[in-house]
Simulated assay, not measured.
Amino acid sequence: MVQPPPLQPGTLYLVATPIGNLEDITLRALRTLRECDLVAAEDTRRTGQLLKHYEISKPLLSYFQFNEARRSDELLERLKRGEKIALVTDAGSPGISDPGQRVVAAAIAAGLRVEPVPGPCALIAALTASGLPTDEFHFIGFLPHKSGQRRKQLESLKGYAGTLVLYESPYRIEKLLEELNEVFPDRQVVLARELTKKFEQFLRRSPSELLAVVRERRLKGEFVVLVGEAEEKI
């Protein structure tokens, strides 16, 4: 078997971590976490549990939404000194509706190497199993919290030809479905929740039908919400 190359000094590694099922972590991700000098994590407690599960002991540094600017400068200095740094989020790929983009852009601007270590991603997992078209899609992430801004953004997406993909929390999923029922009443919507976990579920119905289900069952878990294309009228 060909031995993988060692980690390169002064490199920022973007390591994808499981979104629910710990078996989804890649061999390369585990090797990167074992060989790096530092793990920058969105939540050091959660990442600490992940590392402990795989018997990995590494220094942890918090890197989250409200300290990105300060931490990015610190990480750049450490990279310039030749440290090998792994950046992880709570789940999935860094920078996808999670912290990461700021330090990646700064590292590139400084001429430093950035290397992705791909793996689990809720967006791709939900899209590929949704049954909706995958050849063209638009990822929105989380909509703004304010109703006016949310509605304006949804209205702006009416003319988009592909599948729309959003993230939503269990606390706002009912509100989102109400908005989808107003803006996209005739489109198929897929709710994907608890992805890769024991109670993973896909619900495929119209916005109004899904709204009735959510109001009746009070579904829990983080959601990936997919909106199908408008049907052509002949």
Rank of each mutant, 00 (worst) to 15 (best):
F64R: 13
V103G: 02
S206W: 00
E77N: 12
T17M: 00
V189T: 08
S97L: 03
L79V: 12
E174V: 14
K233T: 11
L176V: 08
R28Y: 07
I96N: 04
E178P: 02
Y167P: 04
V103Y: 06
L51K: 14
A91C: 05
P144A: 04
P4M: 15
L191I: 08
E168H: 07
T32W: 02
K197H: 13
L176Q: 09
R46D: 12
S97Q: 07
I173G: 00
E179V: 07
G48F: 01
K80L: 12
I173P: 02
V2K: 11
G100R: 02
I19R: 00
A107M: 01
I108V: 15
A105E: 13
L143V: 13
Y63A: 01
T44K: 12
L210M: 09
L38G: 00
F184V: 11
K146C: 12
F199A: 06
P207I: 11
F66L: 01
E115G: 01
V213E: 10
S57Y: 04
P118L: 05
A122S: 09
P5H: 09
L38P: 00
R193N: 04
A192F: 10
A29F: 03
A107G: 07
P5D: 14
G221N: 07
E35D: 11
F202E: 05
E42T: 09
E42V: 03
N67C: 12
S93I: 15
S206C: 03
T11A: 12
V183I: 15
E136H: 15
V225T: 08
V165C: 15
F64D: 05
